[in-house]
Nucleic acid binder design. Structure first.
Lengths: 208, 208
DNA sequence: TGTACATCAGTGAACGCGCGTTCACTGATGTAC
DNA sequence: TGTACATCAGTGAACGCGCGTTCACTGATGTAC
C-alpha cells in the first residue's frame, strides 16, 4: 500500500537548483530537510526559513506547500505512520513471528529517527486528520492482530494487556536508544539488542 | 538522602509578592513554573521571560539564579533524578519487590511529568555535571541492584539484558501514557495498568 | 503548429513579535565592630 | 544597641536577532482551441 510513494529515491534532482525558477520537488526536499533536522537537533530546531534555505529557495516558499509549520509536521507524521505500517505488515507477512515485528519497530525508529519523533509528538502537528488516524490504526494494528492470530481472544483484557506490554517494551527501548540513554553503535547492534531484550530466540519466557 | 529539600511544601509564600523587592524563594518559584509549563505545553514553551512574569518578577531576574536557560533545565533534571532515586530506593527498601520498583517508575513519570520530560531530554541542559551523573546512577542503579539481589550475576550479559528489558517496558509505558497515546484517567489507573502490564501479581511469566 | 490564457510555484520586501542577554542601577539584607 | 559596609537579589531600559506570516508580484507550465 505504498500509495504515498515516500521512498527517498523519488527526489528528482539534487539540492542545487541551477538558478531555475521551479524547484522540481520542493515538497519532498522540505520534508527531507525537516526530518534530518529533527533527527540531529530536535523539532525545536526546525524553522520554515531554515528549511527553505537548505532547499535553496526563498523563505516564503514553504507556505505554498504546507500552509504553516504544523502542516509540515502533519505531513511528516502521516508519512511516518504509513511507512511504519508498511514495514510491520511486511515483516509479519514474511515471518509470521510477532517478535520479529517488535524488532522491526525498534529498527524503524533507528532508521527514521526524525519521522519517529514527530509521530509521537502530536503537539507538533495540528488536530489529526482522518488519513493520519487511519495510518496510525494500520500501524498499531500490527501490535494486536498477530496476538489474535496466535490465540488471544479479541477484545479481551489479556489481549489489551499483552499488546500494551509489547508496545511498551519496544517503544521504550527505541526511545531510550534514540535519546542516547542506551548507546547503540549502528543499526545492526540495535537489532541484536532488540532481539535479546525481546527474548528472541528461546529465552525461558515467550517473547513478551 | 533528601539533601536537596525539593519538596513542594518548601515554598515560603504565595505567588503574589505584595510589592516586596525580594521574592523570598524565586529559584523555587521559577523551577515550579517551568515544570508546570513543560508538563502542559512542552519544553519549547518555556521562556525565561514567561517564567519571570509568572513569578511576578522582572524578566531579567532568572539570569541571577540559573545563568541561562540551559542552567534552569539542568537544575530541573538534577532535582528530578534525585527525586526519582529517592522514590525507587524507598519502594525497594519497603517491599523488596522489583516489580513494585517498576510500578513506581511509571507512577513517578505521571506524578512529575515536567521533571520526567526534562530528565530524558539531555539536549535541553548543557553538558551534565558530576552531580547530575551521580543522581542518574543512583536512580538507574535501582533498575539493576534488585536484580543482582535476586540472583543475577553481576556484570553478566543476562543482567544487562534483563535490566534493559525492565527499563524499556516501564519507560515505554510511561512515555506512551505521557504523550497521550495510552489514555490514563488518573494516577491510580496508571498504577493499575502498570501492575497489569508488568504481570503483577501472578501472571504466567515472572515480572519481566 | 501556434496562440491565448488560466493555473501553479516561487520571489523578495515588509511587518510585528517575543525572545535571550547585557548593563548600570538600586533596594534589601546581614555581618563586623 | 548602633553604625558602616559588603554582599546579595531584583530592576528596567535597551540591544540585536530570527522567526512566521502577509502581500503584490512574476516566471513557468500546461491546456483549450
Amino acid at each position: 500500500m505504498a500509495t504515498l510513494g515516500y521512498s527517498r529515491g523519488m527526489t528528482v534532482r539534487s539540492d542545487s537548483r541551477d538558478g531555475r525558477y521551479h524547484h522540481g520537488d520542493l515538497r519532498r526536499a522540505l520534508i527531507e530537510a525537516a526530518v534530518e533536522t529533527v533527527a540531529t537537533d530536535g523539532p525545536a530546531a526546525v524553522t520554515l526559513r531554515g528549511l527553505a534555505a537548505r532547499a535553496g529557495v526563498s523563505h516564503a516558499a514553504p507556505v505554498h506547500h504546507f500552509g504553516d509549520k504544523a502542516g509540515l509536521f502533519a505531513a511528516i507524521a502521516l508519512e511516518g505512520f504509513d511507512m511504519m505500517a508498511d514495514d510491520l505488515t511486511a515483516v509479519w507477512e514474511a515471518t509470521a513471528d510477532f517478535g520479529e515485528v517488535g524488532v522491526r519497530y525498534v529498527h524503524f525508529a533507528l532508521a527514521h529517527p526524525g519521522h519517529f519523533e514527530v509521530m509521537f509528538r502530536p503537539d507538533l502537528a495540528g488536530p489529526p486528520g482522518s488519513d493520519l488516524v487511519a495510518a496510525k490504526e494500520r500501524a498499531f494494528g500490527m501490535l494486536t492482530g498477530p496476538l489474535v492470530a496466535s490465540g488471544l481472544e479479541e477484545h479481551s483484557e489479556s489481549l489489551r494487556t499483552t499488546s500494551l506490554a509489547s508496545w511498551s517494551i519496544v517503544h521504550g527501548l527505541a526511545t531510550l536508544m534514540l535519546s542516547g540513554n542506551v548507546p547503540v553503535a549502528d543499526r545492526s547492534t540495535g537489532d541484536t539488542l532488540a532481539r535479546r531484550v525481546l527474548g528472541l530466540p528461546g529465552s525461558g519466557c515467550p517473547p513478551v
